[in-house]
Simulated scan of single mutants.
Amino acid sequence: MTKQQIVRLACVAAAVASGLGAASPAAAARTVHQVKPGQSIQKAVDSAKPGDVVTIAPGTFHESVDITVSGVTLRGAGTGRTVIVPDTETPDSKSIGSACAKAGNGVCVTGTADRSVDRVTVRNLTLRGFAKTGLWATRTDGLRVENVTSEKNGQWGIGQERSVRGVFRHNTVANNGDAGLFVGNTVDAEEGALDTKQAVISHNRMVGNRIGLTVRRLRDLTVSHNEATGNCAAMFLVGDENKPRPGELRVVGNYVHSNNKYCAKTARLPYLQGSGIVLTGVEDSHVVGNYVENNVGKAPMSGGIVLARNFMNALNERNEIRDNVVVRNGTADLTVQDKGQGNTFRDNMCAVSQPAGMC
Rank of each mutant, 00 (worst) to 15 (best):
residue 52 D to W: 01
residue 83 V to C: 06
residue 54 V to I: 14
residue 69 V to I: 13
residue 57 A to T: 06
residue 72 V to I: 15
residue 62 H to R: 14
residue 49 K to H: 09
residue 59 G to W: 03
residue 51 G to K: 08
residue 86 P to R: 09
residue 69 V to Q: 15
residue 59 G to H: 02
residue 74 L to P: 01
residue 57 A to N: 11
residue 65 V to S: 01
residue 57 A to L: 09
residue 51 G to F: 10
residue 79 T to R: 14
residue 84 I to H: 04
residue 45 V to I: 15
residue 76 G to M: 05
residue 85 V to T: 14
residue 45 V to G: 03
residue 85 V to Y: 05
residue 57 A to I: 08
residue 51 G to P: 09
residue 50 P to V: 02
residue 46 D to M: 11
residue 68 T to W: 04
residue 76 G to K: 03
residue 81 R to Q: 13
residue 46 D to L: 10
residue 52 D to I: 00
residue 83 V to A: 08
residue 66 D to A: 13
residue 61 F to M: 02
residue 64 S to M: 08
residue 52 D to V: 01
residue 79 T to H: 03
residue 67 I to S: 04
residue 46 D to E: 13
residue 62 H to D: 11
residue 47 S to D: 11
residue 79 T to E: 15
residue 65 V to G: 07
residue 83 V to R: 05
residue 78 G to I: 07
residue 59 G to M: 03
residue 62 H to P: 04
residue 53 V to C: 02
residue 52 D to K: 04
residue 73 T to I: 08
residue 72 V to P: 09
residue 43 K to V: 13
residue 80 G to N: 09
residue 73 T to N: 06
residue 79 T to K: 10
residue 82 T to L: 09
residue 77 A to Q: 12
residue 74 L to K: 04
residue 49 K to E: 11
residue 51 G to R: 12
residue 60 T to W: 01
residue 77 A to P: 10
residue 70 S to M: 03
residue 70 S to Q: 06
residue 56 I to V: 15
residue 49 K to Y: 00
residue 66 D to E: 15
residue 72 V to N: 01
residue 82 T to N: 05
residue 71 G to N: 12
residue 52 D to N: 12
residue 86 P to L: 13
residue 77 A to R: 07
residue 79 T to V: 15
residue 65 V to C: 05
residue 69 V to G: 03
residue 55 T to C: 09
residue 64 S to T: 08
residue 67 I to C: 07
residue 49 K to S: 10
residue 49 K to V: 01
residue 59 G to R: 01
residue 81 R to T: 09
residue 48 A to Q: 08
residue 71 G to R: 04
residue 63 E to F: 13
residue 49 K to W: 00
residue 69 V to C: 11
residue 53 V to N: 12
residue 57 A to W: 05
residue 44 A to D: 12
residue 71 G to Y: 00
residue 55 T to V: 14
residue 82 T to H: 12
residue 48 A to V: 10
residue 52 D to M: 01
residue 55 T to R: 15
residue 61 F to H: 06
residue 43 K to P: 02
residue 60 T to V: 14
residue 74 L to Q: 02
residue 86 P to C: 13
residue 52 D to S: 07
residue 54 V to C: 12
residue 53 V to W: 00
residue 49 K to L: 10
residue 66 D to L: 02
residue 58 P to N: 00
residue 51 G to S: 08
residue 80 G to Y: 05
residue 55 T to Y: 11
residue 57 A to S: 14
residue 74 L to H: 03
residue 67 I to T: 07
residue 77 A to N: 09
residue 67 I to D: 10
residue 76 G to P: 07
residue 61 F to Q: 00
